[in-house]
Design a protein around this nucleic acid. Sequence first.
DNA 1: GCAATATATGCAAAAACCCGCATGTGACAT
DNA 2: ATGTCACATGCGGGTTTTTGCATATATTGC
Lengths: 127, 127
Amino acid sequence: MANQAMPDYETVSGRLKLLAHPERLRILDALRRDAECVCHLEALLGKPQPYVSQQLRILRDAGVIRDEKEGINVFYRLIDAELIGWLEAILGPVQGEHPEMARHKKVISCSCPKCEPAPIPLMHEPA
Amino acid sequence: MANQAMPDYETVSGRLKLLAHPERLRILDALRRDAECVCHLEALLGKPQPYVSQQLRILRDAGVIRDEKEGINVFYRLIDAELIGWLEAILGPVQGEHPEMARHKKVISCSCPKCEPAPIPLMHEPA
DNA sequence: GCAATATATGCAAAAACCCGCATGTGACAT
DNA sequence: ATGTCACATGCGGGTTTTTGCATATATTGC
């Protein structure tokens, strides 16, 4: 009999603001596939590093992503289940790897673990 | 073979901004159930009429709602299928009538057709 | 220790948004 | 035509957002 509870529009719209920004949305679309380090996100957005870190901070302060330090790098992971659901409804389901991301990974070659899939033992000497 | 096309984050985030506002979200949550006239939305929000009209204008200019004049009243209807889907993912499915809306309908008694379900023929004279 | 790399933070100007208020318009009745 | 009711529009100021840039911190290697 009880009708549904009214949603807290204030809270919901506050969380929607996180998505309602093109660069943050792009970041979240990348992170919902896999954790990424800042250097890769920087290449993906094509924006200066402080800019990327600032958007990441907004998302981190809101509690939707978590930073995982790995040596000199920091990987960010999308940890908010509700937001993952919203992204699926808005951007569609995840299919395979992020194309832009994959392209940038081949290009920037930072020192993060993902860029060195196998620490090749480095043969004697080249010609 | 073709990976999914990149969404236009600019466009999507622009549409998300429509939802990322508590009062607009409340309006949309009401309109996804049924068309409503401005006077009822005014009662729902508890805000002055020009304020409500301004939010309605933003939604109308974005093309997600349509105004239908009916005599002296104006009814607004949610006409964007994509947005309806997003709202369902974010606020949950529609179940029954909007409780707040129903309550306000009993209280404000404006002249709109919805407030007079049957134009009672008005008997001779009361006691 | 020092240098280099990866990332974070602080600040300020520009832009956008939010919102109240005065006023405009259009329909209907008298 | 005058008034009234329902709604729309314009405008201005206050607040937040956005974003570029300078700088700070932390880790690694030397």
